[in-house]
Design a protein around this nucleic acid. Structure first.
Lengths: 240, 240
DNA sequence: CGAGACATTGAGTAGGTTCAAAGACCGTGG
DNA sequence: CCACGGTCTTTGAACCTACTCAATGTCTCG
């Protein structure tokens, strides 16, 4: 990369998700044009980011925070179909409509692209399209894993799987502790009812299973929203 | 397309999935090179197509029949994570390992490509990659819809949703009846226990719900594996 | 300190599972 | 052609996991 660009790239080069986001597929000139069309947006915990019947107007990468995506039934039942962590991306490329809700589960910062500009970039930079394809394939595998959880796991297995996922995903980004180690204390940005909506359970059941895991010495809570995995091995085993 | 190619393309041009499969993104020369590396394979109902811990060696399009993909737990629990109908595609592009089982749910014909050749084609023909990306995004939306079903629908809603899906997918391909009409009689290629594994229910529950839908006059059975949707409106409504 | 949102806990219930037995279907071979 | 065996399906009864309803406890923030 030449010095001319480096200076202008500023924010992108030091961006925390630079190594993991879609933009990782770009460098130099490409990253610069990408940056031209990027706009940062901030959301407070609880803010609606996309409503289910919106036209899709933008595509975004999560820079910080956690975004929850969900389907909502007409009678109020709700299913969370995915959590987006930093470096994950949001928005339905090549689709006219967005089929689900997206809501900030904590304070969130997004790196947004106007949809048609983003799709233009995909045409111009094959590496970016390749990256999006691979990410989408990974998302599909993850969604199918979660289908197995929803269809066939018991409440205890579901709750254990959730905390396992959280421990794994919090590691890689939240406090940048390198070698894949679990950070001691994990911050839980979802409330009990949201965990229930993610796992296909009621919040009371989630409560009881959390208690049970604590009694077994697998989890340890320092407050209602902060915990530590005490016995990673057992947690993994219980989660199936 | 020039006459030179047309002659050689034979089978591809008359292929029943020509208008819906990935190959729809190709024409002329491109389709010809695609055909060069394609091999048809036939499976009998019940045959294993991919085992969960296989290295991925090929990518395929379903030409006829239905393929079921599933996750299997170590204790035997099973979750079907997707059914593949004609024109759907099978196999994990850009992944070293295949994360699920695939089994012929009826007699099946596949149009197979050796994985690395297929990935080569994706590089050579951007239209093909675009098509794969769009298909993957659609698959992801479908998987997320199914997550909502698994997590939040009742047994009755699940079973109704299943027959609705079947009615919709059987229409477009099975007997080529044009205008989106539901064919009268639908052939059920899954047994009750497989329907259960798809919906996260036991086969006994599936049985009881089928009976209930029949008693309500929504479905009509001509044999254990052949039925007709009698009241499409009610079925849609029950399915949520 | 008080209000409101969130979390915990208990008791009773129900939807779906489990277990068990009988019935239907299909291909095979006598 | 029919009897036989195996697999799949249906149905019933008992049970249990997770849900519902309700009351109480805890945290946070103005």
């Amino acid at each position: 990369m030449d010095a001319f660009n480096t200076a202008e790239l500023g924010r992108c080069l030091t961006c925390i998700i630079r190594d993991h986001g879609l933009c990782n597929a770009l460098s130099g000139e490409q990253l610069l044009s990408f940056k031209q069309i990027a706009r940062r947006r901030h959301y407070k915990s609880g803010d609606l980011i996309l409503s289910g019947d919106d036209k899709v107007t933008f595509i975004a990468g999560v820079v910080s925070g956690i975004v929850k995506m969900s389907k909502i039934f007409s009678d109020g039942r709700q299913q969370i179909i995915g959590l987006l962590f930093p470096s994950d991306s949001l928005g339905r490329t090549f689709g006219a409509h967005n089929p689900y809700f997206a809501e900030a589960a904590s304070d969130v910062e997004l790196c947004c692209f106007e949809k048609s500009s983003f799709e233009g970039m995909l045409e111009d930079f094959p590496g970016l399209k390749q990256r999006l394809l691979e990410q989408t394939l990974d998302d599909l595998d993850a969604a199918r894993d979660w289908m197995a959880l929803l269809g066939r796991k018991t409440a205890e297995e579901k709750v254990a799987s959730f905390f396992l996922l959280l421990a794994q995903r919090s590691t890689s980004t939240e406090q940048g502790c390198g070698g894949g180690l679990t950070p001691d204390i994990i911050n839980l940005s979802l409330k009990r009812s949201e965990i229930g909506d993610y796992l296909g359970l009621t919040y009371e059941t989630v409560c009881r299973q959390i208690r049970s895991l604590s009694e077994q010495g697998v989890l340890e809570w320092t407050s209602k929203r902060r915990f530590r995995v005490r016995d990673f091995e057992s947690l993994t085993e219980i989660a199936q």
